[in-house]
Design a protein around this nucleic acid. Structure first.
Length: 670
DNA sequence: GAACTAGACGTTTTT
DNA sequence: CGTCTAGTTC
């Protein structure tokens, strides 16, 4: 397929900074891929000097695959295609010496951070979950804005900010002591390092000679700063973005960074991609008219040359159960009428909890579906247990990991022993693990407990030796066996079935780790520390999801749908308080919700349905629902609103069908 | 180990 | 209202 003029310009403009304003479905990924190939094949860049950055692992992976397909695996070798966080991790890893980090540092996920903050702030926040979460959010915001603790303390105004700023400082100190980093550090630390250290900066600018950034509207302050530092004076970069699809402001993303770019780089070349290759003209017209209600930095008018297409449908249901059943009924009907597959349908919703009823309806109708997002595999206790062991093996100073597993299985190391160990370590300013091996410790701790501690410490050291000197795969196998984890699961699980499930999860984890240690066609073999940090960044989960990819209806949040496309899309819960969400209405941030609706609409290629309820239960209380204001903003001549009469007859049909099934079941029983 | 109960808690979006 | 947890009972 040939590039259109805009795409062509975007690919071939390589002499300076370039901003590609790419509307939904305008082929931006194609531009990036072609541009990488162009840089390597025609401009003489070596693959290893080009970096492309995305926001999700899924996008990075997809890009990697498409690039190797288009220019050949050999040529693509050495390209840096990763998320911002993975790139940051890479910089931290290679510069750990300058940063004063020991190799094998730990990466804390949100749960680890929460646990640490809880521990750290017992006196101040009294284990108040909401407060700790607020603190975690505040710290994350500070880090995203490149504010270090001292600055936070200086600028804090109200009482709570002052307290939080001091706790931020304490948290940062503690993380340093643990030799641990959190997600935000993966951007913050490289950025500060590059800013302050000219030598390191020069080295990385030499290393990354051309930088491409996808979904640029999602960058926050620290990410933008990192981009600036990496590209330096030469400013050889291309960023691709769409301010209308900026839906992560709550995570610190600043669409204004698109404007700032023009100020920071006066020679910035602006290229617009306005032809949409995805959606019917009707769908696109609706999307355009909706988003015209928002203010715009750059004007952009998307057009499509595809068919005008079917009208968009607005379907009513009495309540949320019927809404879910209705969606399923429509999918079955529609699939029967056209030659479509389940995989052609997507159901999009505002909040994760909305998936529950949809799942139930799909399941009872035996429709295969795939749910993206939701509770992570890595949040499961059994996975966290084994991961904690592995983290500890790699970084014994990770107190968090140590506390999780030191008495798992029971080793006779109780709270009293741990408190004394903790006090000792605190006094000496060493890690818990290091304290175990201090000769003086036996003054404070009973001989029995002392022996257990020492045995535990030795076990971790031995496993570490085996993992580094010998075969890491074997080491993990031995680890799981030696701690009798299977027995532990059967003892602690609420049922034998549950224990089996958990053990299966462990086997799954083991399989992944093994695969990553050994590598495959697309990825080099990794070391154990690399595997652990990767898994903490949730890389594997997404890969696994892709592998399943059968013929399944897709369920996901509107946020998670960004960047994807589907022939037939259902948007459920298009009601006031849901989309736009109540909290956004309260906070006067309806514009972002409108962009979210815009993202949802522009996912659809051929047909689109809006679902809404007349009433909906919330915490046991029944609430009446109003159609979303966004539905009112759409061009009504492109919509078909279902009339009440149809609603009733459709409802009756569904009820009747259900009664029939029930009857059949009864008959079957007898 | 399973099956039950009471009681608290909750719904924004995620790298 | 539904889900999760801790605690109880058999």
């Amino acid at each position: 397929m040939k590039l259109n003029p805009g795409q062509n310009d975007a690919v071939h403009y390589v002499s300076g900074p370039c901003l590609v304003l790419a509307g939904a479905g305008s082929g931006k990924t194609r531009v990036i891929i072609n541009k990488i190939a162009y840089l390597v094949e025609k401009c003489g860049y070596q693959a290893r000097h080009i970096a492309a950055v995305t926001f999700t692992n899924k996008a990075a992976r997809e890009m990697k695959e498409r690039v190797s397909q288009s220019m050949g695996r050999k040529q693509a070798r050495g390209l840096w295609i990763s998320t911002f966080h993975t790139l940051g991790l890479e910089i931290v890893k290679r510069e750990h010496k300058v940063l004063g980090l020991k190799p094998g540092f730990s990466l804390f996920d949100d749960q680890d951070t929460f646990a640490l903050l809880k521990e750290l702030t017992q006196d101040e926040l009294d284990e108040d979950k909401d407060l700790i979460k607020a603190l975690a959010a505040a710290i994350s915001n500070w880090k995203g804005a490149l504010v270090i603790p001292q600055q936070a303390i200086k600028t804090a105004k109200d009482e709570q900010s002052i307290l939080f700023a001091h706790l931020y400082q304490r948290y940062a100190q503690q993380m340093k002591a643990y030799n641990a980093l959190d997600f935000d550090d993966l951007i913050l630390i490289p950025t500060l390092l590059l800013r302050m250290n000219e030598e390191v900066r020069g080295r990385w600018q030499q290393r990354i000679q051309y930088l491409l950034v996808d979904e640029y509207q999602d960058t926050n302050t620290s990410q933008y700063e990192l981009v600036k530092l990496l590209v330096g004076e030469r400013a050889r970069f291309t960023v691709v973005g769409d301010d209308d699809q900026s839906i992560y402001s709550w995570r610190g993303a600043k669409p204004q960074n698109l404007v700032l770019l023009g100020k920071d780089f006066p020679k910035l070349k602006l290229i617009k991609l306005e032809q949409n290759y995805r959606s019917s003209q009707r769908i696109l017209r609706c999307a355009n008219i909706l988003i015209a209600n928002n203010p715009h930095v750059y004007d952009k008018s998307l057009f499509s040359e595809l068919a005008y297409g079917e009208p968009l449908k607005v379907l009513f249901a009495a309540n949320e159960e019927q809404e879910a059943e209705r969606v399923v009924a429509e999918i079955i009907k529609h699939k029967f009428m056209g030659k479509t597959q389940f995989g052609d349908y997507a159901i999009l919703y505002r909040g994760n909890h909305q998936s529950r009823l949809l799942e139930r309806a799909l399941m009872t109708n035996r429709i295969p579906y795939k749910l993206s997002g939701g509770t992570s595999f890595f949040a499961r206790a059994e996975i966290k247990d084994i991961m904690a062991y592995l983290k500890l093996v790699v970084n014994p100073d990770d107190d968090n990991a140590l506390l999780r597993v030191i008495n798992l299985p029971k080793r006779g190391i109780g709270p009293a022993t741990l408190e004394r160990l903790g006090n000792y370590a605190n006094d000496k300013k060493i890690s818990l693990f290091a304290a175990i091996f201090e000769a003086e410790l036996n003054h404070y701790i009973a001989p029995g407990a002392m022996k257990s501690l020492y045995e535990f410490g030795k076990f971790i050291v031995d496993t570490g030796e085996m993992a580094t000197r010998g075969d890491p795969v074997e080491a993990i196998k031995v680890l799981i066996r030696k701690i009798n984890y299977e027995d532990y699961l059967y003892e602690t699980s609420t049922s034998a079935k549950a224990a089996e499930m958990r053990m299966k999860n462990i086997s799954e984890l083991y399989r992944w780790v093994t695969e990553m240690l050994q590598g495959d066609e697309l990825d080099e073999p990794m070391t154990l520390p690399e595997v652990i940090t990767r898994l903490t960044l949730r890389d594997m989960m997404e890969r696994n999801n892709e592998e399943e990819g059968g013929d399944q209806v897709q369920l996901m949040t509107l946020h998670a749908s960004k960047g994807l496309e589907f022939p037939y899309v259902f948007m459920v819960g298009t009601e006031e308080r849901i989309l736009p969400h109540q909290s956004s209405i309260d906070e006067d941030n309806v514009e972002e919700e409108r962009r979210l609706a815009y993202v949802g609409i522009t996912r659809a290629q051929k047909e689109l349905w809006f679902m809404l309820c007349r009433e909906r239960r919330q915490f046991g209380e029944t609430m009446r629902c109003e159609p979303s204001r966004f539905l009112m903003e759409l061009p009504q001549d492109d919509l078909v609103w279902e009339t009440r009469k149809v609603v009733q007859s459709e409802q009756q049909r569904v009820e009747k069908g259900k009664a029939n099934i029930a009857n059949l079941r009864e008959m079957f029983k007898k």
